[in-house]
Structure formats: C-alpha cells, structure tokens
C-alpha cells in the first residue's frame, strides 16, 4: 500500500467494542446533511486519525455504520462527522442532541497521501458528500501550507442547495495559491456558478500535472471519469488517489462484505492509489 494506515487500537479494547462518546454539537449543513461533533475520552486512541480514515458509529440499539471523519486531525479533543440522512442509522445519528451518547470504533483504513504530496501541488476533487472525507486533508494542508505548492479544490454537487461547508469553501478560495471551484448538475435560476459534472472544471485548473497529487472522493462513476481525465491530462497514475465505498460491517477485515477484487476496502483502503484500483474500477458487478 502506498498509503499509510495508523496503528490498530490497543489490544486492551477489542476491535469490535465501541467507545461511548458524548455528542457535543449537531449542525445542519444542507436539507439532509448534518455535521456531528463528539468528544472522545481524552487521549483515547479512537480520536487519533489520519485524514481519509473512517470510524464505525454505533447508535445504541439501532445499528452501526462506517462514517468518514471530516474534522481537523490536529484537534484531538473532538471527532467530527458529516452525515447524510438516508436510512435508519444515519437518521438516528443526525437527530442526536448535544449530550446524547453514541458509540465509536476505529479509526480504520488507509489515509490520503499527504506525506508523498509534500513539495507538490494538491488537487482535491470531490463529489457530493465526498467532500467530507477530504476536508481533514484540506485542514492538514492548510496547517502545513509551506510544505505544499498550489492547492486546488474542485467540488461538484447535484444542486446549489446540496453544497456542503459553503462559507468555509468560499474562504478557501480566497487564500493565496489556492483555487476553489464548485459546480452543480442543476443550477436553477439564481445560480451564477458553474454547471456541469466536476470534470468540466479541469480545464480551469492552473497546475503542472507532473508535480501534482490528486485526491478524489465521490460517487464511483465520478471518480472513474475524474481519474481517467487526470491521467489524460498528464498526471502520473501513481499520483492519483481515490477513496472507495463498499458495504462495511466490521471495519477490521472480518466480515468480508467490502471485498473489491483482491482488496478488503476497510483495511487495504478506503484510499487507494489509481494503479492499485484501476484494474477493478471498470468491472461491472465485481
């Protein structure tokens, strides 16, 4: 694996056992998406994550789900998750109140190649809720801004009302050496920004392909075309990384559900380099 994974949780706590944590805030991002912040016990390894990793979130008596961590990795006192309410467990998660408890396991999986990207430009390509697992990488780059060259953030969404982190996104665009562009599938009458799939923004990006590392997260079809297009534009394939989604029940490689070709997405991924995952991306029903 080209991407680093953090150490496993300590042997004293079984990997399948959640840590009860207190919800500290729930804020509405869009009509169906919320950002949940929890306070893990101080110093607990559950909060030591690398950008791109995920946790298993447990709602007492309801169920458990893999959710990417969307907060700042430098802030160890809290863990942040951006969750779209699409089913029973996600609905229960986003309707928690501050003071409620949820269970957290993890962190699990591989992370974005921030070390490899040092000295290079970084191109972030996000689709929909895919911006959430990329936000820790953006925070990390902004904290160590001198280590990186240009930062380009491209973000595609279905409609203006689905755009996440709007204020933050606008602020990123104003930073020096930083480009932040968004586009939507359907603009409506008031939208003055770009319309089209996220790959249509590539022509507006100012970067040197050979010196750029791309990090992509979004719907699988979007990642396939984004990676293909970036390769065509001269990015070396090994400098393209994407984060895969599969059904995950355990996060630890036991349940077998997340297999994709030779990989367990939970432990070999979710972040893969393009050459690792490319042979399996185009296989329908793999």
């Amino acid at each position: 694996m080209s991407t680093a994974a953090s150490a496993a949780p300590p042997a004293t706590r079984p990997v399948m056992e959640p840590v009860p944590v207190r919800v500290t805030s729930v804020s509405k991002e869009t009509h169906d998406t919320f950002t949940l912040t929890v306070a893990p016990p101080p110093g607990d390894p559950v909060s030591a994550f690398e950008p791109g990793q995920f946790s298993m979130l447990y709602v007492y008596g309801v169920g458990e789900l893999p959710i990417s961590i969307s907060g700042d990795p430098a802030v160890r006192e809290s863990l942040t998750y951006t969750i779209r309410s699409v089913g029973q467990v996600t609905y229960q998660l986003v309707t928690r109140q501050p003071g409620d408890f949820i269970g957290v396991r993890g962190p699990f999986g591989s992370s974005w190649p921030l070390k490899e990207a040092r000295g290079k430009s970084v191109l972030i390509v996000a689709g929909g809720i895919g911006l959430a697992p990329l936000r820790p990488a953006i925070y990390s780059i902004l904290r160590h801004r001198g280590d990186y060259n240009r930062l380009v953030i491209l973000y595609g969404s279905r409609s203006p009302r689905d755009l996440l982190y709007r204020k933050e996104f606008a602020a990123w665009g104003l930073l020096p050496d930083t480009q932040a562009l968004s586009t939507v599938d359907y603009g409506g009458v008031t939208w003055r920004g770009h319309v089209g799939v996220v790959t249509t923004l590539f022509r507006l990006v100012r970067m040197q392909p050979k010196e750029t590392v791309a990090m992509i997260c979004g719907p699988e079809i979007m990642m396939r075309y984004a990676a293909r297009e970036l390769e065509a534009r001269g990015l070396p394939p090994e400098q393209i990384h994407l984060s895969m989604e599969r059904n995950m029940k355990c996060g630890a490689g036991f349940c077998g559900h997340c297999q994709m070709g030779p990989y367990f997405v939970c432990k070999h991924g979710p972040v893969f380099s393009y050459p690792e995952i490319k042979p399996y991306l185009d296989l329908y029903e793999l």
């Binding site: 008596g61 169920g63 458990e64 029940k249 355990c250 349940c255 077998g256």
Partner: peptide, 10 residues
C-alpha cells in the same frame, strides 16, 4: 468461508 454479519437486538 468466514464471512459474517452483525445484528442488533434490543
């Protein structure tokens, strides 16, 4: 064959 699933019971 080792695959498993998890169920919640309340």
């Amino acid at each position: 064959c080792f695959c498993v699933n998890y169920e919640d019971r309340t």
